[in-house]
Design a protein around this nucleic acid. Structure first.
Lengths: 213, 213
DNA sequence: GTGATAAGTTATCACTGATCGATTATTGTG
DNA sequence: CACAATAATCGATCAGTGATAACTTATCAC
């Protein structure tokens, strides 16, 4: 039983980008399986079948890998939000559906969600320096799509508050709380998950919209 | 300009617990200043004025230090919750005040809050194994005090839902979302903080309580 | 004094993310 | 087909991390 150490064949000349993809895939799987900071660059490299320094030809930093994963995940969220908005009509029911899109996204992409919103960005700003605001900008992109939906509801005169930024941020915080707790504290004695989500969303709807019991 | 390397005098025989206190103080300061995982055990030790391995006479693990800080912080939250409950009367106004207690606590103890609710507990459970659920139990203690307050409001017939666990978890998620985002994403273009908090709390109140515009 | 022992030390380990310079393999060109 | 150019990659290594082992020193009870 010697270590297998399967080496992936060297990529032909122009196909480096392909390897980049392999790295991201391997990293995502490992992060999902073992959590973010228990996974080392060496483990990622081994999963891909290359040496650890080879990673640095594709990513300047370990954080860059997670950042890229996060950006991609947000691209998906933006898509879903746009889809939700495309045929949106300002009713309470459709509004709840839109909130649900966010929750589902978070629960289906827990690792990307973690990287985007739950990873500590050192207070001295070292993380920000290196990785830039790109993941956060991607997050804000999704946030803005969400704000557009909220805007339609407000224009229909359904909201208590009429400041779109204010409502959106408040709702976002409300959604984020649920998603992040369900992800980070999965072992908490929660009420049945589907029930909790439904309750939470209808609470947010009652809080934001008027006239609906 | 040589490194000072001030050594703290050795503690007399029975006074080891005192040193433990010094370590916790130093760690809290460093964590607050530089963030959780950018602070090393060597930095903590130097701040206290002892060698790095000396820490391990008082804490089995670095995580144990943060866990202890977190437990202490939650003791404070429990106190505040009990104070809020002591003279509680089930009105919408007092209810909002209780929610505010939670938010204020989180924003005043961001590092403890981070450790308790926002730190990744490796999915393989290594963190949990080592540190136990003690920080989380402390958090749940606070949660239960909160549930008692919610219970009073329900008994007064003010809530939409009548399942206390359900309401409490939903409200908690709502509060946590705001607190954790304000802590972790302080640089996001938030609406003015006080306004946001007020909006968020009244949204939660409208969502949970009935009959109040 | 003299042992016992709490308190603290130095040296070291395995591991982490990251960098350096050398070394392949592939490619378009002569 | 041979050859230089270069993308792709590797081995060796660095400083820093959390943690451990073995040793020393100060303090205390008797």
């Amino acid at each position: 039983m010697i270590a297998p150490k399967v080496r992936s064949p060297r990529k032909p000349k122009g196909q480096g980008a392909e390897r980049r993809e392999e790295i991201l895939d391997a990293a995502l799987k490992l992060f999902s399986a073992k959590g973010l900071h228990t996974v080392s660059t060496r483990q990622i490299a081994e999963a891909v079948g290359i040496s650890q320094p080879a990673l640095y030809a594709y990513f300047a930093t370990k954080d860059d890998i997670t950042a890229e994963l996060c950006i991609r995940a947000f691209a998906i969220l933006v898509e879903r939000m746009e889809a939700a908005r495309a045929d949106f009509t300002p009713t309470a029911e459709r509004f709840e559906k839109a909130l649900r899109v966010y929750v589902d996204f978070g629960l289906e992409n827990p690792d990307a969600y973690r990287v985007a919103f739950m990873v500590e960005k050192g207070l001295d700003g070292t993380y920000k320096e290196r990785v830039g605001d790109r993941p956060m900008m991607a997050g804000i992109g999704a946030f803005q799509r969400f704000a557009e939906i909220v805007g339609e509801v407000r224009d229909a005169g359904l909201t208590h508050d009429d400041d779109v930024q204010r409502i959106t941020q408040t709702l976002w915080a409300g959604l984020h709380g649920l998603v992040s707790l369900l992800i980070a504290r999965a072992d908490f004695p929660w009420v049945e998950r589907e029930v909790l989500i439904a309750c939470h969303i209808s609470l947010l709807r009652r809080g934001a919209l008027k006239g609906v019991a």
